[in-house]
Amino acid sequence: MLLRVVPFKPAQVLAISYINFFQGTPVLGQLLIIFFGIPLFTGTEVSAWTAAIVAFSLFSGAYLGEIWRGSIEAIPKTQWEASASIGLSTIEQLRYVIIPQAFRMSVPPTVGFWVHLVKDTSLASIIGFIELTRAAQIMNAATFRPMTVYLTIAFVYFLICFALTRLSARLEKRLRVAN
């Protein structure tokens, strides 16, 4: 996100290509590229755990960076002016006036993204990583009761996501922002 806003062309180009790549391709593809691609080119084995962590981190970075940049840029110019006119430096403007408001603004899209991310983790089962969905497959294979197993798993996903959403709603209530 910082790279995207610094006034230095190559940094911006780098940041924009990174963002475009990770936003423009499916996270499943990214998982596969990292899990199968890296060993192919470098010869080093990548564990499912590492591949999942790396892929989801890069993927989240591309999205969250843009969400947060958007939130900061969405704070009205008048807030910058008002805070400048009382003598705050740029860093102080960000710390006391801009970021607190941008944070509040970024809560709903950030949580929305997390909810997606939690569900997207099911994709990691493809590369053999034992997350919720993979665990369910294994359990189903052992018990032959797909409805029970998958409904339970769905409920676990729901619990995680619902908790996130509730948290977001509470945060939104507590923080205030310019409209």
């Binding site: 807030q79 006391y96 310019a178």
Partner: peptide, 13 residues
């Protein structure tokens, strides 16, 4: 130098 703006520009948070 203090300035007061047309649109108040208070810090809403």
């Amino acid at each position: 130098v203090g300035i007061v703006f047309q649109s108040f520009n208070l810090f809403p948070h």
